[in-house]
Lab assay of single mutants.
Amino acid sequence: GKELVLALYDYQEKSPREVTMKKGDILTLLNSTNKDWWKVEVNDRQGFVPAAYVKKLDP
């Protein structure tokens, strides 16, 4: 199944490769191989958020 992450903080995108999220958002995790930036999908948009700003949810 899909892996989900919880947004721990608000994040405002600073480049087109990033996405904005609000604290409490549930996002689909697409790629977590980079320790600093994780690729997520939110509202049909894909992009990166700081890994420290999200937490993996237990399945």
Rank of each mutant, 00 (worst) to 15 (best):
N34A: 13
K14E: 09
A51N: 03
K55N: 05
L27H: 03
D44N: 14
K56S: 07
Q46P: 09
T33P: 04
E13A: 11
L57H: 15
A7Q: 00
Y9L: 13
R45C: 12
W38L: 06
K22R: 15
V49F: 00
L8S: 05
D10T: 05
D36Y: 11
Y9G: 15
K2W: 05
V54W: 00
A52W: 07
L29S: 03
E13I: 04
K55Y: 03
G47M: 05
L57D: 04
W37R: 05
N31L: 08
V54C: 10
V40L: 03
G24L: 01
M21K: 00
K39N: 08
K55C: 05
D58S: 13
V40H: 00
L57R: 05
N34E: 13
Q46E: 14
D25Q: 14
Q12C: 09
R45M: 08
P16L: 09
S15D: 07
E41F: 06
P16I: 11
E18W: 01
E41I: 10
G24Y: 02
E13P: 07
V54K: 00
K39F: 11
V40K: 01
A52P: 11
L30A: 05
Y9T: 14
D25K: 03
Y9A: 15
A51F: 01
P16E: 08
L29D: 01
K35W: 03
E41G: 09
Y53G: 12
R17T: 13
Q46D: 08
K23Q: 12
R17W: 05
L57M: 12
V19Q: 03
G47A: 04
G47Y: 03
T20C: 06
F48I: 12
V54D: 00
T28N: 10
W38K: 02
V40E: 01
K35T: 10
E13V: 06
T33C: 09
A52R: 15
Q12K: 09
P59H: 05
A7G: 04
K22E: 14
T28V: 12
V40R: 00
V54F: 04
A52Q: 10
E18Q: 09
T20Y: 03
N31Y: 04
G47V: 04
V19R: 02
P59N: 03
Q46S: 14
E13M: 14
G24N: 06
V40F: 00
E3I: 12
K55L: 04
V5Y: 11
D36N: 14
Q12L: 11
S15G: 10
V54R: 00
Q46M: 10
V5Q: 02
L6Q: 14
F48Y: 09
K56A: 10
W37F: 08
L4R: 10
D36I: 15
E13Y: 04
D58G: 15
M21D: 01
P50I: 00
L6Y: 10
G47T: 02
K14I: 06
V5K: 01
K22V: 13
D25M: 13
D25G: 04
W37A: 04
S15F: 05
Y9C: 14
I26K: 11
L6S: 09
V42A: 15
K2L: 05
D36T: 13
T28I: 07
G47I: 03
G24W: 03
R45A: 12
A7D: 00
A52V: 11
M21F: 13
L4H: 10
L30E: 05
N34M: 11
T33N: 12
K39Q: 11
K22P: 00
S32I: 07
R17I: 08
Q12R: 11
V5G: 09
P59C: 08
K23C: 06
N34F: 07
N34P: 07
S32Q: 07
K2P: 04
F48N: 06
V5L: 13
K35A: 12
E3V: 10
Y9Q: 15
Y53S: 15
Y11G: 01
T28S: 13
P16R: 11
K35P: 15
N31Q: 15
K39G: 06
T33Q: 08
P59G: 12
D36A: 12
I26H: 15
R17P: 07
D58A: 08
N43P: 07
V5I: 07
L6H: 12
K35G: 13
A52H: 07
Y11A: 01
A52C: 08
N34W: 03
N34S: 11
K23T: 10
D44Y: 06
L6K: 15
G24E: 01
R45G: 06
K22A: 15
N34G: 15
N34Q: 10
L8H: 05
V54L: 14
P50M: 00
I26Q: 12
F48M: 12
P16M: 07
L27E: 00
V5D: 00
E13K: 15
L6P: 02
K56D: 03
T20I: 02
P50C: 00
M21I: 12
Y11C: 01
L6M: 13
E13W: 04
Y9R: 15
A51C: 05
N43Q: 15
I26P: 02
E18S: 05
N34H: 15
P50Q: 01
A7L: 00
T20S: 08
P50V: 00
V5S: 05
V5R: 02
Y53D: 03
D44E: 14
D58R: 12
V54H: 00
D44W: 05
T33L: 07
L4T: 14
W38E: 02
K56M: 14
I26L: 14
L29M: 04
D36C: 12
D44Q: 15
F48E: 07
N34C: 14
V42G: 12
E3K: 08
G24F: 03
D25W: 09
L57G: 04
A52S: 14
R45V: 13
K56L: 11
P59M: 03
K39V: 12
L57C: 13
Y9V: 15
F48D: 07
S32Y: 11
F48W: 14
Q46L: 08
I26T: 14
K56R: 13
L57E: 05
K55E: 14
K14C: 11
N34R: 12
K39T: 11
G1M: 13
D10F: 01
Q12F: 12
N43C: 07
F48Q: 06
P59D: 04
K39R: 13
L6N: 04
V42S: 11
K55W: 03
K23M: 06
P16A: 12
V42F: 13
Y11H: 05
W37T: 03
K23D: 02
W38S: 04
L30Q: 11
V54I: 08
K39W: 07
P16N: 10
V54A: 04
V54N: 02
N43A: 15
R17Y: 07
A52T: 14
R45K: 15
Q46H: 08
E13S: 12
K2D: 05
V19F: 10
P59T: 06
Y53E: 02
L29G: 02
K39E: 15
V40P: 01
P50L: 00
V5F: 07
A7K: 00
V5E: 01
T33R: 11
E18N: 04
E13C: 10
K35D: 15
G47N: 00
K14A: 12
D10A: 11
S15I: 05
E18T: 06
T20P: 12
K55F: 03
W38P: 02
K35S: 12
F48G: 02
V19M: 08
P50F: 00
Y53K: 14
E3P: 03
K23H: 08
K22Y: 06
G1W: 05
K56E: 10
A7W: 00
D44V: 06
T20E: 04
L29E: 02
K23I: 03
W37L: 05
K56Q: 14
E3W: 03
L4N: 08
A7E: 00
W37K: 07
Q12Y: 10
D58N: 10
Q46I: 07
D58T: 12
L27Q: 01
Q12M: 14
T28F: 08
M21P: 00
N31E: 14
D10C: 03
L30C: 13
L30F: 04
N34D: 13
A7M: 01
K2T: 10
K23P: 03
V19Y: 03
D58I: 04
K2C: 08
M21T: 04
K39C: 13
A51R: 12
E3R: 09
N43E: 15
E13Q: 14
K39D: 06
K14Y: 03
G47D: 01
V19G: 02
N31W: 03
K23R: 09
G1R: 10
E18Y: 04
I26E: 07
R17E: 12
Q46F: 05
